[in-house]
C-alpha cells in the first residue's frame, strides 16, 4: 500500500516569514491526520498548498500517483470535485447562500454528471438526515440556518460525492459542544464506512484526540513533532507540544 497523499520538502515564504519550512507529510488511505498548532503556525497555509490552491516556493505534492502541483487546472478541478472535499472554517465560504440546501448538496453531484432530479433530491434529503438536519428544510436557504446547521450542511455538500480525501479547516469551530460531538462521531463513522482520509486542521486538541489517528504539531512553519495521537498527547517530547498539551482546559 502506498500513501494517498504525500508531500515532500514544502517551503513557502511570505516576505521574511517562513509559512512553511521544509514540511514532509504522508496521508494513508482511511487515515485521519490532525495538524495542530497555534495561530500563524502555518496550518492553514499547509492545507492550501496541499490542495493546490497556493503554489509553494519549493517541494512537491503527489496524490494517488499524480503530481498535484504540476497538473493543469482542468485536472485539478476535476480532482477537487471528485476525489477531494474541502470543508471551510466559515460555512459561508463553502456554501452558496442564495441556493437552497438541496441545491447546495446537489451541486457536486450535478457537476459530476448527475442529471436525474429525483435521485439528486433523494441523495440531498438522505445527506441532510445524516448530518441531523430535518429533511423538511431541503428547500430552505442556508441563510435561514443556524451557524451549526450551516457547517453541517457544508459537510453534507462535501461528502455527497464520497471523496477519498477531505481537507477540513477548523470544521468544528462554529458548533456547540453537543453538535460538535455528534459531528465528530459522524466523521469517525464515515471514515470507517467510506474509507475516507481526512486532513484536519484544528487548534482544538480534544477534537484532534477524538478524531485523529495521527497528529502533526506545527510551529513557525515547521513540523516540530509528529506521531500517533495518544503518543503525542500523552507523552509529548517537544517543549512546544508539552506547552500545548498542558494548556488544554478541562471542563
Amino acid at each position: 500500500m502506498s500513501a494517498l497523499l504525500s508531500a515532500r520538502g514544502l517551503e513557502l515564504r511570505f516576505g521574511r516569514i517562513a509559512a512553511l519550512d521544509g514540511v514532509d507529510l504522508d496521508i494513508w488511505p482511511g487515515e485521519v491526520v490532525a495538524i495542530v498548532g497555534e495561530s500563524g503556525s502555518g496550518k492553514t497555509t499547509l492545507l492550501r498548498v496541499l490542495s493546490g490552491l497556493v503554489p509553494p516556493d519549493a517541494g512537491g505534492v503527489i496524490f494517488d500517483g499524480q503530481d498535484v502541483l504540476g497538473m493543469n487546472e482542468a485536472a485539478r478541478r476535476n480532482l477537487m470535485r471528485t476525489q477531494w472535499g474541502f470543508v471551510h472554517q466559515n460555512p459561508r465560504d463553502g456554501l452558496r447562500m442564495g441556493v437552497s440546501a438541496g441545491g447546495n448538496i446537489g451541486e457536486r453531484l450535478m457537476a459530476t454528471g448527475a442529471r436525474h432530479y429525483g435521485n439528486i433530491r433523494a441523495a440531498a434529503a438522505d445527506w441532510l438526515r445524516r448530518v441531523e438536519i430535518d429533511p423538511d428544510r431541503l428547500d430552505a436557504l442556508p441563510r435561514t440556518f443556524s451557524g451549526g446547521m450551516q457547517q453541517r450542511l457544508q459537510i453534507a455538500r462535501t461528502l455527497v460525492t464520497h471523496p477519498r480525501l477531505v481537507f477540513m479547516d477548523e470544521p468544528t469551530g462554529g458548533l456547540d459542544v453537543s453538535v460538535q460531538a455528534r459531528l465528530l462521531d459522524l466523521i469517525r463513522a464515515l471514515v470507517a464506512e467510506l474509507g475516507l482520509s481526512v486532513l484536519l486542521v484544528t487548534h482544538d486538541i480534544a477534537a484532534a484526540r477524538l478524531l485523529a489517528h495521527r497528529i502533526l504539531v506545527m510551529r513557525q512553519g515547521q513540523v516540530v513533532e509528529q506521531g500517533l495521537t495518544d503518543r503525542v498527547l500523552d507523552d509529548p517530547q517537544h517543549p512546544y507540544t508539552q506547552l500545548l498539551v498542558t494548556s488544554v482546559l478541562a471542563a
Binding site: 470535485r81 452558496r96 441556493v99 438541496g102 441545491g103 446537489g106 451541486e107 457536486r108 450535478m110 457537476a111 459530476t112 442529471r115 432530479y117 439528486i120
Partner: peptide, 8 residues
Amino acid sequence: GLMHVKLY
C-alpha cells in the same frame, strides 16, 4: 454544474 443548480 452550476447551470444545473439553477434548473434544480
